[in-house]
Design a protein around this nucleic acid. Structure first.
Lengths: 233, 233
DNA sequence: CTGCATTGTGTACAAGTGTCCACTGAAAGT
DNA sequence: ACTTTCAGTGGACACTTGTACACAATGCAG
């Protein structure tokens, strides 16, 4: 058996901390790889992950107390990934025509490029450990918030209150994350099926934005009691 | 140890098929109960389910070949449940004012009432076994379809093509299923948090419907090649 | 009534799991 | 040059798991 060849580069000239971070990342990547092979994160075991990472089971404990803690580390990567997505999305330009379609294409490409992480998000966002779920939801909430800021900065939708803008972005994000699993489940080499899905997604977003452009904030908040007149034009 | 008291009613006067169906339902319910205790379906084992159902592990095989097959049976219940939801939703009446809010309240109540099944849907819709995922997606697709028919029958949105109506319903269903986990994760006894969530959900649906009422089907489909003119009415 | 089919039981086994403990070797601090 | 620290090793323990086989009880058809 090979003696833990988890460093294929220069095995010397590495400080201890760097080495530790290396195998730590190895563990994270190992978990993602297993997810990529169809296993669900919740059902992963310490031994399984350690084996995939090429270390002995006990060494796992040097980095995480249990799999949930490893999951939280993955959620952090999710945050970084989503932030990068926003950065990329900002560069699609502002030409109104076809801007939605371009954004959708960027998103689809991004999901496929970060396949493993999106598999992780999609399946753990609504299942498995409660702690993970809340952590992911938190990250997604941040994402929504930043998206709203971006939209505001973009200049459109001047008449909308901040809370309405966030509501809209929440809907957009829901649609995006809901589309992710379908993107990931696409059988490779079915371009017309993918095109159909893309078109549907584009139209959904256009519908949302159309609704947003017609939206008028309700002057009186008719939250609890419904005695006042809603009169939404 | 008690000798399998899985029938608490009259243990006699039951035909064999009825008895079988009884323990079969016991297995389904056992799986749901375990889900309700925080376990995710994918990580459930045969022994675990059988133990919870009060039978010996081997008896499981008399009903299902493996856990996936049991999952498919659960998906069938999901279908039934969704159909009932549509039936209930049809009865909220047609008064346009506050109709969305009433529908949302009905939905929230329904999700809480069928908590276990919605937990199952939410978490397995995007994770775990591919077969289950596709089965659920199929059921959801049916649901969307029927919802579109209902909307059409309702009379509103006359100007929309069938495909557009389905796209809209797809978005609505995505929003609904996306909201389910948040409804289920609500800490009990926080009425104002729930009210906030409700209000957000209501506004999202109103936004969608507002967009729908402004929507015009594009005469020229600029799909893949924009050379032909499909002239969709 | 007789015999078959079928649901559920008990035992058993190989394989996998989380975690504890004692250990090694080398980098890091003195 | 020394001691300390600590990532990684190896073995062991008590469990749990899926599944196979032989068997018991009982509804039901002949």
């Amino acid at each position: 058996m090979a003696p833990a060849p988890h460093v294929a580069k220069r095995e010397d000239s590495l400080t201890r901390g760097e080495r530790k971070n290396l195998t730590r990342n190895g563990l994270l990547q190992a978990a993602l790889n297993l997810i990529g092979e169809g296993r669900s994160f919740t059902s992963l075991g310490i031994r399984e992950i350690a084996r995939e990472a090429g270390i002995v089971p006990n060494a796992f404990y040097r980095h995480f107390r249990n799999t949930d803690e490893l999951g939280l580390a993955l959620v952090e990567e999710v945050g970084i990934t989503l932030r990068r997505l926003l950065r990329e999305a900002r560069q699609v330009g502002e030409g109104k025509s076809e801007m939605v379609r371009r954004s959708v294409l960027v998103y689809q490409h991004y999901v496929k490029q970060n396949r493993l992480l999106f598999l992780f998000i999609s399946s753990e966002r609504a299942g498995g450990s409660r702690i993970l779920r809340l952590a992911i939801r938190n990250e997604v909430s941040h994402f929504t918030h930043e998206m709203a800021q971006d939209l505001r900065r973009l200049g459109a939708y001047e008449g909308l209150s901040t809370s309405s803008l966030q509501m809209i972005c929440g809907l957009i994000v829901t649609a995006m994350l809901g589309a992710a699993p379908e993107i990931l489940d696409l059988p490779a080499g079915q371009p017309l099926l993918e095109a159909e899905m893309t078109e549907d997604f584009v139209r959904q977003l256009q519908l949302i934005l159309l609704g947003a452009s017609c939206w008028r904030d309700q002057p009186p908040a008719l939250l609890a009691s419904s005695r006042m007149r809603p009169k939404q034009p």
